[in-house]
């Protein structure tokens, strides 16, 4: 088993770095659906960057935390941020909406793409009514996601 925790500033450079890391992890550990794993990690990181930016203050060095846990069966990625993560309202929306519902929308696809492409997506409550996202993809196979609130 491997566990990696990465803590950094919530900047746009961090998005590229996480993309790169996700690609390498997906490749090294033979994730079946590598492209969709990279997309999901990317979307979660972008969500965090947006949340931190919305705070509108100076960005701290450790504002974004991405944890990777790799076992024989699966890879688990947890993304948390100083912005407090994803609002509960957004998570509730996930249970009710599909990508077809937002076909003409110019926002609101990120979490739906994660739900569609990862095997398991769950949310860990934080204070202030926001959540961290935890997502899993099995190694060597792929399936539709189950959401656990």
């Amino acid at each position: 088993m491997y566990e990696i925790t990465m803590q950094c500033k919530a900047t746009e450079e961090a998005i590229d770095f996480c993309d790169l890391l996700a690609k390498q992890i997906a490749r090294f550990f033979s994730l079946h659906d590598r492209d969709m794993f990279v997309l999901s990690v990317h979307e979660a990181v972008v969500n965090s960057i947006k949340a931190v930016k919305q705070l509108g203050r100076k960005i701290d060095d450790g504002a974004l935390v991405v944890s990777w846990r790799i076992t024989e069966e699966e890879v688990t990625v947890t993304v948390t941020d100083e912005g407090g993560g994803i609002p509960i309202k957004e998570i509730e929306r996930l249970g009710q909406e599909s990508l077809e519902d937002v076909l003409l929308a110019e926002s609101g696809r990120g979490l739906l793409l994660i739900k569609e492409t990862m095997d398991v997506v769950s949310f860990v409550p934080h204070e202030g009514g926001k959540c961290a996202i935890v997502m899993k993809m099995r190694r060597g196979q792929n399936g539709s996601s189950d959401i656990h609130f």
Binding site: H42, L104, A105, E106, R109
Partner: peptide, 16 residues
């Protein structure tokens, strides 16, 4: 090389 949800939203913006 890559498109994300923001890129998809941009395509929709362009489409409209």
């Amino acid at each position: 090389l890559f498109i994300d949800s923001t890129g998809l939203a941009l395509l929709i913006h362009f489409f409209k």
